[in-house]
């Protein structure tokens, strides 16, 4: 079975995700970019597992782990982002701590 397809897919996902993660000023959009990278990793793992056919190989169990961690991470991330939004009034990732605290002091 040729793995070319999955690999290309993974590369596209990772590339897009990396671009998204690095270029977005908005924290939520950045998170989405990260999820795309994770998606690429998952594609690699699953396709490898499928190719090897070994029931207990890393490829089968790992995606589950990764998805779980990612979920926990996103939960925490959203909590922090929410808190930041509440305290600073923006989730702009280009604000430095000085401008951020000015925002906060100027805000309500």
């Amino acid at each position: 079975m040729s793995l070319l397809g999955p690999y290309v897919l993974a590369a596209v996902l990772v590339g897009t995700g990396l671009y998204g993660a690095l270029a977005r000023r908005n924290a939520v959009l950045m998170l989405i970019g990260v999820e795309l990278i994770l998606g690429g990793a998952l594609v690699l793992l699953v396709s490898t597992a499928a190719a090897s056919g070994d029931q207990w190989s890393g490829g089968t169990v790992l995606p589950l782990f990764i998805i779980t961690i990612a979920a926990a991470e996103v939960a925490l991330a959203l909590a922090v982002i929410l808190a930041a939004f509440r305290l600073r009034g923006s989730i702009d990732l280009t604000a430095s701590d000085r401008t951020a605290s000015e925002h906060a002091e100027a805000g309500p």
């Binding site: 690095l22 924290a27 950045m30 280009t94 604000a95 430095s96």
Partner: peptide
């Protein structure tokens, strides 16, 4: 060295 989160991320990339 700025304290912008995006800078930190970009440097990682």
């Amino acid at each position: 060295h700025t304290s912008r989160p995006l800078t930190a991320v970009s440097m990682v990339g």
